[in-house]
């Protein structure tokens, strides 16, 4: 068995934490797991991408068209990583653009969101979610990464058990935030069932 999930977004959105939760949940289920992350300069509002690979794997990064799914916290970042996902795979992305500051200076262009979704749909299956809104409803924008994990669970794209995910989330977030994170997880799941 070999499963690869790419988690992508912008520095500060909790991308690495989400990938980490996924990796530790996989170990809890008894799988081998490797993942990659980048630190340093990239954290200052730059794009962030983590690959989580589970099963008979060695490489911490994915090859083109090998990932089973992309979980993206931002539309443009879904597009940036699109070539990594298999054509029979799936992209789950949040719908709220974060415009790179350089675009405001007239350097580069942020494409129309519909154009982004069009391109993704031509490559593979696309599922959209307004995770920002759900996270706020759950109690804090900081739970966005857990909303995304909840949605991914409902879509059945994560090769780990829901129980392990929930236990790992509980073991990761500060105790006083467990409740709103559990709420965020359930609301993410619920949104996908609609």
């Amino acid at each position: 068995m070999k499963k690869s999930i790419v988690v992508a977004g912008v520095g500060g959105q909790g991308v690495i934490t989400a990938a980490n939760i996924l990796a530790r949940a996989a170990l809890r289920d008894g799988y081998n797991v490797v993942m990659s992350e980048l630190h340093g300069m990239a954290q200052r509002g730059g794009n962030v991408e983590c690959s989580v690979r589970i099963g008979d794997v060695y490489s911490p990064i994915v090859g083109n068209e090998t990932a089973n799914a992309i979980i993206s916290f931002e539309p443009l970042e879904a597009l940036r990583n699109l070539q990594k996902v298999r054509k029979d795979g799936l992209v789950l992305t949040d719908v709220n653009p974060i415009i790179p500051p350089l675009v405001s200076l007239g350097i580069g262009k942020y494409p129309a969101v519909e154009e982004i979704f069009d391109k993704i749909s031509k490559h593979c299956r696309l599922i959209k979610i307004n995770a920002d809104e759900i996270a706020r409803k759950a109690g804090s924008i900081l739970t966005k990464n857990v909303v995304m994990l909840g949605a991914a669970t409902a879509l059945n794209i994560l090769p780990v058990s829901e129980e392990s995910l929930i236990e790992t989330i509980k073991g990761t977030v500060p105790p006083k935030y467990i409740e709103i994170n559990m709420k965020a997880f359930e609301m993410g799941k619920e949104e996908m069932r609609k």
Partner: peptide
Amino acid sequence: EKEEGEKITDRPPVLC
């Protein structure tokens, strides 16, 4: 050989 992805607008790190 897999296709290369299209060139996407950069999101370089910036001063906070």
